[in-house]
Amino acid sequence: MAIWLLPQTIGFSNGGYLWQFVSQDIWPAALRQGDWSATLDWYGALFSGQIWPGLVQTLLLTQIALVLTGILILAAYPFATRALAGPRGRWPGRFLLLVLRSTPEMVLAYVLLLLFGPSGLPAVLALALHNGGLIAFLVANASDAEHNGPQARPDDPTGLKRYAYIETPRRFPAMLALLFYRWEVILRESAIMGILGIATLGFYIDSAFEEIRYDRAFLLILVTAVLNMLVDSLSRRLRRLARSESGRQLQ
């Protein structure tokens, strides 16, 4: 409906530019000419030169950020919980996690880019800090809710023993579920980090648009979408496993 309500502007008044984009620009010239041999060569060259390197770099960046996020959660959430940091001592930790979860990944990446220079390190740290702060904040809230609930006991251990034997085992299944939920988000943001000069799929997509090669950009976007759907499907299965494991522990 929105397309029909567009004003009479160049390209939409007679469908010129829009139809050219859909019918010609996003398809390689060899395919439009019916040259199947040249079309296969074009797809093969794009796969070996951009798609495969971009996939590898995106997945590596994603997995490193995912592992670092998990480490950050385990290290940060105790400082924001009433059971481990105390009623007053938890507020600095909660404030820090609130800042991290409220700051977009791209803003953190740009700041870290100024500190560390152009590399994959700013992207990994930005993704880990934002997502780690978000999940650690939720884990700390769950700990505080249980600390005041019926499961709290006056003879529970304190300090490091409570962290290692009570809090972390109870939070771990839910933490994994949240981590797998953010996995697809981290993957998507890793691809977008290509605009910072990191050779992910987003880097090649941005380069294709700069060179006005819409056929390359369309295929790269399609590959990125398929990769996100695959990771999202896998993460949903892993979340179900984590929730079932959490239910068994509560029984």
Score class of each variant (00 low, 15 high):
Thr58Gln: 07
Thr58Val: 13
Leu59Tyr: 11
Leu60Val: 09
Leu61Pro: 12
Thr62Ile: 08
Thr62Phe: 02
Gln63Ile: 13
Ala65Asn: 07
Ala65His: 10
Ala65Met: 06
Leu66Lys: 02
Leu66Gln: 08
Val67Asp: 03
Thr69Cys: 15
Gly70Ala: 12
Ile71Lys: 01
Ile71Val: 11
Leu72Met: 14
Ile73Thr: 03
Ile73Glu: 10
Ala75Ile: 10
Ala76Tyr: 01
Tyr77Phe: 14
Phe79Trp: 15
Ala80Ile: 04
Ala80Thr: 01
Ala80Phe: 02
Thr81Trp: 00
Arg82Glu: 13
Arg82Pro: 00
Ala83Ile: 11
Leu84Trp: 10
Leu84Cys: 10
Leu84Thr: 07
Arg88Phe: 15
Arg90Ser: 05
Trp91Gly: 02
Trp91Gln: 09
Trp91Asn: 03
Pro92Arg: 02
Pro92Tyr: 01
Arg94Phe: 15
Arg94Pro: 00
Phe95Lys: 02
Phe95Pro: 00
Leu97Asn: 07
Leu97Ser: 04
Leu98Arg: 03
Val99Met: 13
Val99Phe: 13
Val99Leu: 15
Ser102Gln: 06
Ser102Tyr: 08
Ser102Arg: 04
Ser102Lys: 04
Thr103Ala: 09
Thr103Pro: 12
Pro104Trp: 02
Pro104Lys: 04
Val107Tyr: 13
Leu108Cys: 09
Tyr110Arg: 05
Val111Leu: 15
Leu114Ala: 11
Leu114Lys: 07
Ser119Tyr: 12
Ser119Leu: 15
Gly120Arg: 11
Gly120Pro: 09
Leu121Asp: 06
Pro122Met: 10
Ala123Arg: 03
Val124His: 08
Val124Thr: 06
Ala126Arg: 09
Ala128Thr: 04
Ala128Gln: 10
Leu129Glu: 05
Leu129Val: 07
His130Asn: 13
His130Tyr: 09
Asn131Met: 15
Asn131Gly: 09
Gly133Lys: 05
Gly133Ala: 13
Gly133Tyr: 04
Leu134Gln: 05
Ala136Phe: 10
Phe137Ser: 14
Phe137Ile: 00
Val139His: 00
Val139Ser: 07
Ala140Asn: 01
Asn141Ala: 06
Ala142Glu: 12
Ala142Gly: 13
Ser143Tyr: 00
Ala145Thr: 08
Asn148Asp: 07
Pro150Leu: 11
Pro150Arg: 05
Pro150His: 08
Ala152Tyr: 07
Ala152Ser: 12
